[in-house]
């Protein structure tokens, strides 16, 4: 398990699970997931990265089916998967399940969180939830042009320090910040940048106790799981797909499957 971190250029995605999730995995080095709130210009970022023309609807829940595309950079081939735009990952709508299952079971090499710079606080809600699940993410601070028009100043460096992941200011419509985003994706994917994601502790002592009890049990059965507390919380919330993953032992494959398939 320990050599997982030594291998700098190894992809971390879960190939088998990705294929099961319907992603064609031929000739792919890295898998990049695009997540974010509705109306953040996520699809524009997707189109800029992949050169495809996906429709950018001004609607929540627009990307009902997942869109995929790809690009090459620095001799590596990236597969980009556009996840449905959601406000949260903790409710039970189909969109949220699709997004969450992809990040959890597909284990993308990088998850790009597209956030609207003009309403950072709202978007951070989702970003923090995503950082509970994965420790490989980049925040794309989109719509910086609108933020400037609204006289908002955002301290991206400080934000990056707070979240523990790279933060790239961008204006996807003007293609501003796209080269930087691609570079940041590469750094996180290759392991050159090691994320230290911010994990939120709940304010309730009783809940924290329950989470740590359960997480302790999980750690014994599923060693090496990157998001123990989150899985424990989801079990407490009665999340069916997590319950099934625990019951069938699939959850174990999330932690150890990587080495066995890529070795």
């Amino acid at each position: 398990m320990s050599n997982q971190h030594n291998c700098e250029n190894c992809p971390v995605h879960h190939r088998e699970n990705l294929i099961r999730l319907g992603i064609a995995m031929d000739r792919v080095d890295y898998v990049v997931a695009l997540a974010g709130n509705p109306n953040t210009g996520k699809s524009t970022v997707f189109n800029n990265l992949t050169g495809l023309r996906q429709h950018t609807g001004n609607w929540p829940g627009k990307t009902v089916a997942r869109a995929e595309g790809g690009y090459s950079w620095g001799e590596k081939r990236y597969k980009v998967v556009d996840l449905p735009g959601t406000y949260s990952l903790l409710s039970t709508s189909t969109d949220e399940e699709v997004a969450r299952d992809f990040i959890l079971f597909g284990r993308p090499d990088v998850t790009v969180i597209v956030a609207d710079a003009t309403r950072l606080e709202r978007n951070l809600n989702l970003a923090l939830q995503i950082l509970e699940i994965t420790d490989r993410a980049v925040l794309c601070l989109n719509l910086m042009d609108e933020a400037r028009r609204n006289n908002l100043e955002i301290d991206a460096r400080n934000l990056s320090k707070e979240l523990g992941i790279p933060v790239i200011p961008a204006a996807a419509r003007q293609r501003e910040g796209m080269p930087e985003l691609i570079a940041a994706i590469e750094e996180v994917a290759s392991g050159a940048y090691v994320c230290k994601p911010r994990r939120v502790k709940s304010q309730s002592a009783k809940l924290n106790h329950a989470i740590s009890t359960l997480a302790g049990k999980l750690a014994a059965d599923f060693p090496g799981l990157p998001n123990l507390n989150w899985v424990a919380l989801r079990l407490l919330e009665g999340d069916q797909s997590i319950i099934e993953a625990v019951r069938s032992g699939d959850l174990g494959r999330l932690s150890s499957g990587v080495l066995s398939t890529s070795a």
Partner: peptide, 8 residues
């Protein structure tokens, strides 16, 4: 129940 998050 599963669809509703297995309420308790």
């Amino acid at each position: 129940a599963a669809q509703m998050g297995n309420p308790v």
